[in-house]
């Protein structure tokens, strides 16, 4: 077996022996990356768990000030974007370039709808003085501190999630450009596949955030 026999292509970089090996490696790499992401978000989920169990009532009251309907609608938007992402991956497997582009654009659009709605919600918090800091005030609660903690966590967690959405948006844009350049075929579509994994992950994070932030007062009623 000669060592540097093959020409480098996108589907077969020179360090790999076979296409299958390269695809395997990329997929494994993305899964490990997602594990690091779980640990990353995990720190915030831990802080959330501790403070919510320390201040259950205040967290419930603060949570009820969030708009459940908007949150729920946004969840649906995000789920739809995951669906269109799956369609994009499927089109890539079938080698249908135009369908890939179409579905990716749809995914991207839904992602931006989500972020738009999120921005609207954040803006509401500004108006209501629910932004942590010296100007913070939450009506009808004696202990303002823990209320601020809730909103600190709210902004930290949704903010970090939104940042991941933005990065995802960047990846999608890059994929759209590359697809248009004809980089992906039915044989080589690993980037689409791997980006799909990432997008679903970001989606799943929201699936946890939504009930933890919006729905906890229901649990006490």
């Amino acid at each position: 077996m000669a060592n540097q026999a093959h020409e480098e292509t996108l589907a077969l970089r020179e360090q790999f022996d076979t296409e299958a090996q390269q695809k395997d490696a990329s997929t494994l790499g993305m899964w490990i990356f997602l594990v690091t992401e779980i640990m990353f978000f995990g720190g915030m989920f831990l802080a959330y768990t501790i403070y919510r169990s320390t201040y259950p009532e205040i967290f419930a009251v603060c949570s009820s000030s969030l708009n459940v309907y908007i949150g729920a609608a946004n969840t649906v938007v995000l789920l739809c974007s995951s669906f269109t992402m799956v369609l994009a991956v499927r089109s890539a497997q079938l080698g249908r370039q135009r369908a890939i582009v179409f579905n990716l654009i749809l995914t991207l659009a839904l992602g931006f709808v989500f972020l738009g709605v999120k921005a609207y919600e954040w803006n509401e918090k500004f108006v209501e003085h629910h932004i942590p800091g010296p100007g913070f005030h939450f009506e009808g609660i004696a202990q303002q501190g823990p209320a601020q903690l809730f909103f600190s966590l709210y902004f930290a967690m949704t903010g970090l999630h939104a940042l991941h959405m933005l990065i995802g948006g960047g990846i999608l844009t890059w994929l759209i450009i590359r697809t248009k350049q004809g980089a992906f075929t039915a044989e080589y579509m690993t980037p689409v596949d791997v980006a799909g994994l990432y997008w679903h992950f970001v989606d799943i994070i929201w699936i946890f955030l939504f009930p933890l932030l919006y729905l906890i007062d229901r649990h006490l009623k």
Partner: peptide, 24 residues
């Protein structure tokens, strides 16, 4: 892979606390 992200998020929270008064 398992530990460093936790440091990262911890430092991020410290940064947010210094920059935006997010008081975790």
């Amino acid at each position: 892979v398992l530990g460093t992200p936790v440091l990262a998020v911890t430092l991020l929270l410290v940064l947010c606390e210094r920059l935006f008064h997010i008081g975790i």
